[in-house]
Computed example of a mutant assay.
Amino acid sequence: MRAIVIEHRSDVVVLQLCGELDADSAARLYKTLAELLERPVPRIVVDLSELKFCDSVGLSAFITSKQVIVSRGGWLSFAGADQFLTQLLETVGLSRYFAIFPEVEDAIAAARM
């Protein structure tokens, strides 16, 4: 898995994930999220459009990070999930816990409201 951080605005970061997020690559995600959590008010859009697979270890990283983000007044949302990931998030109940948008631009626009 590759994790690419894109500074979209001064207060929003897009984290683009590419490849497969599983037990072997989750450490990379944890490290990247930990760096992003150092921001005073973390606002993160996770671009899932290039992510082909995610297992429970990857989902756990998002849940743990969101708890820290919310405690600091920030947010974490998803964008661009394919049908597999959308169904996975719905099946495990995370579609109620995370905002999920069709496109990155939609998630960023929602942040302005």
Rank of each mutant, 00 (worst) to 15 (best):
G73L: 07
Q83E: 15
W75H: 13
I44R: 06
T86G: 12
V104G: 07
R9F: 03
F101W: 06
R9K: 14
V68E: 12
G73S: 08
V46Y: 08
E7Q: 15
A107C: 04
D55Q: 06
L37H: 07
A34T: 10
L36S: 08
T64R: 13
E103V: 00
R43P: 07
A109E: 01
E103P: 00
V12E: 03
G80A: 08
E50N: 14
L36G: 07
A109N: 00
C18P: 02
R43T: 08
F62V: 01
R96Q: 12
V12D: 01
K66D: 01
S56K: 01
I69N: 06
L21W: 03
H8Q: 04
G19Q: 07
V92S: 08
E35I: 09
S95D: 15
E38V: 05
Q16I: 07
V45Y: 00
P102E: 09
L88D: 09
L21Q: 01
A111S: 14
L94C: 05
G93L: 13
L59H: 01
S56A: 03
A111C: 11
D47E: 09
C54V: 14
T32L: 13
V57H: 04
D11G: 02
G80Q: 02
A110K: 05
D82F: 10
D11T: 05
Q16C: 10
E105N: 03
R39D: 05
V92W: 12
T91F: 09
M1F: 02
A107P: 00
F84P: 04
W75F: 14
R28E: 14
V12C: 03
G73N: 08
V70I: 15
E103D: 01
